[in-house]
Amino acid sequence: MRFFLIPGLLGLAFTSHAQSRVSAITTAVPIFTVSPDARAAALGEAGVATSPDANASYFNAGKLGFIRHKHTISASYTPWLATIANDMGLAYLSGITKIGERGALTTALTYFDLGEIQYRDDRGNEKGIFNPKEYALTVGYGQKLSDNFGVGLNARYIRSNLTGSNADFKPANSVAVDLGAYYTKDLTIGSGSYNLSLGAAVSNIGQKITYTNPTQADFLPTNLKLGTAITRELDAYNKLTFVFDANKLLVPSPYYIEGRENTDPDVVAENDRRKNYGIVRGITSSFSDAPGGFSEELKEINLSTGLEYTYNDLLMARVGYFYENSMKGDRQYLSFGLGVRYQVFGVDGAYLVPNSKVNPLAQTIRVSLHFNFNELQEAFGGSTDGTTTN
């Protein structure tokens, strides 16, 4: 692969040629907005309010206190651009250990390998091979404050090395935190048994990242996630869960003026000013800075929804849909998946059908393995698979 391919390999905004104005929000390390596990992938990337498992801290650290196993581990792998390369992928490893009856400690490693890149000079001569990569190490803690409500916090170290060290570029580093809250409640409506869960999380709150000098720093993908999950027990063996998430990047929107080019001095000056915002101002301004006003702010919200069917806490079938407005990137796709839980072992798989084959996850299967040890059934009740919070 050539070095000039890097922006396309990393970018997660895929534009629509039918759209007259494209104003996708861009950040550093966008890979850390991609759900790493197959269960969420099959549910259209929804995960902030789903029942907690070993990958809970990625979506919402507030769920950690509701984990029902003393120890739980998950490993996931997602091929990247598999239709054109065989050496790129996103790997994720996460583990959770209960601390007492109401707390849990987690650690996680995210690793994105971009494969080998052949450097060439302006005459096409080979100048060596480099393997760019990005990774993040996360530690977190979650606590149940009551039988129904919990909160959590993650701290994360991020490193992005896209070009190696040279005179013009250097590896970039940053630190960030996540905040999460989770509420779950069993309900009886008529003759039906339900579980309602609500989740809220803000992820990647941290210092901007730079590959050159501090005056050219880029925002981390700070993201607000709100969601719900509603589970209906159909009978003793069958249940159905509906999930829905809404996500918004909390970084400044690109500025534009209708009828003018992006190189217009007024446009360039305003975009430069927004790039120099601090972390707090970047977050607060993100709710009201879209040039198109409130209607454009709504277009910056990505929607994820899905349905999970569970049989006997053993077999799961999932379907989901992810929607991003065409003005803001145009990622739209269906997702499908299956899962199995048996004793301490589980496996999930997911496959998506995108609106465009340029999607880096097109025609790939995402896989997650789960290992759950020492269920705390007396303290927390429910099934042995970790897929419900009853």
Rank of each mutant, 00 (worst) to 15 (best):
R232K: 12
Y256I: 09
S286D: 09
A41I: 09
D272M: 11
L226H: 06
L187S: 07
L81A: 11
L64Q: 04
F322K: 05
R123A: 10
F287R: 11
A317F: 09
D53F: 04
P30A: 07
T284N: 14
I6V: 08
L64Y: 03
T107I: 09
G8L: 12
G103N: 05
L224N: 11
F59S: 04
I117L: 09
T138N: 14
L303C: 04
D53C: 05
G293K: 08
T106R: 02
L114T: 02
D385V: 03
A379G: 04
E134H: 02
Y323N: 03
Q377I: 03
P52C: 00
H17F: 12
G192F: 10
A217C: 11
V367Y: 09
Y183F: 14
K63W: 06
R366L: 13
L114N: 02
V139E: 03
D37N: 10
Y157M: 04
E308H: 01
R341Q: 15
G329R: 08
E324P: 05
R21D: 08
G282N: 05
A269L: 06
V268P: 02
I283S: 11
P291N: 13
Q377D: 06
S165R: 12
Y141W: 12
T212V: 11
Y333K: 06
G103I: 01
L196K: 02
I67M: 03
